[in-house]
C-alpha cells in the first residue's frame, strides 16, 4: 500500500492514493467473501446488509490501526464477526451461533478470499459448475429458489412436493454443492 497517507487522507500530488482510495479498493477486493461470511453468520438478507454497512464504518474508523503487514480479509471478518453478534443480540435474532460453526465459516471465507484473489476460476463459476452437476430434481429446486426468486411454498405448490419435502431437497442439494466445492478447494 505504498502512498497511503492515513493522517491527511489526501491524494499525493504525484498520484499516490489517499487512505480513502486505498480503503475503497480494499473493500472492493474483499466485499465478496465478506458478504458471504456475514450472510452465513446471520442468515437474513436485511440484517446482512446492515452488518455489512456497520462493518464498513468500523473498519474505516479503525483503518489507521490496521497492520499493513497483515492481510486485510481476516481483519475485516473479525470486525464483521463482532458486529454481527452485536447486531443479532440487538435485534433478537439467532445469536447463539456455535463457535465451532463460526470458525468453519471463517475457514470457508478465507478460502473464498484466496480463490477470489488468485485462482483461474471465479467463485461464481465454481458454484455454477457445481449446481450444473446436481441431479435434475435437486438442480431444479436450487434454480427456482435462488435464480427464479420463488419462495419455498411456491415451489412446493408447483411441484406438489410439500414445503417440508422441498426444504429437505434443498438442504440435500446444498450438501451436494458443498461436497463439490470442497473438491474444487473452495470449502475447507
Amino acid at each position: 500500500m505504498a502512498g497511503l497517507d492515513v493522517e491527511s487522507n489526501q491524494a499525493d500530488p504525484g498520484g499516490s492514493p489517499s487512505a480513502e482510495e486505498v480503503f475503497e479498493v480494499l473493500m472492493r477486493q474483499n466485499a465478496g467473501h465478506l458478504m458471504a461470511f456475514i450472510r452465513a453468520m446471520v442468515r437474513n438478507n436485511a440484517l446482512a446488509e446492515d452488518v455489512f454497512q456497520e462493518t464498513f464504518m468500523v473498519a474505516w474508523r479503525r483503518f489507521e490501526d490496521f497492520d499493513r503487514d497483515r492481510p486485510f480479509g481476516p481483519w475485516l471478518r473479525g470486525i464483521a464477526h463482532r458486529t454481527a453478534l452485536a447486531m443479532m443480540r440487538k435485534t433478537r435474532k439467532e445469536f447463539a451461533v456455535d463457535t465451532a460453526v463460526v470458525d468453519m465459516i471463517e475457514s470457508h471465507a478465507a478460502r473464498h478470499e484466496r480463490v477470489s484473489m488468485s485462482e483461474a476460476s471465479s467463485v461464481v463459476e465454481m458454484l455454477n459448475e457445481c449446481v450444473g452437476r446436481l441431479p435434475d430434481r435437486y438442480r431444479e429446486v436450487i434454480e427456482v429458489l435462488y435464480r427464479g426468486r420463488r419462495s419455498i411454498s411456491e415451489v412446493a405448490e408447483a411441484t406438489d412436493a410439500g414445503p417440508e419435502a422441498v426444504k429437505k431437497r434443498l438442504q440435500r442439494a446444498r450438501g451436494m454443492i458443498a461436497e463439490c466445492l470442497r473438491m474444487k478447494g473452495l470449502l475447507a
Partner: peptide
C-alpha cells in the same frame, strides 16, 4: 457451516 456458507454463495449468485 457448509450449509450456511453454500446458502450465502447461492444468495450471491
Amino acid at each position: 457451516a457448509d450449509d450456511r456458507f453454500v446458502e450465502a454463495l447461492l444468495e450471491a449468485s
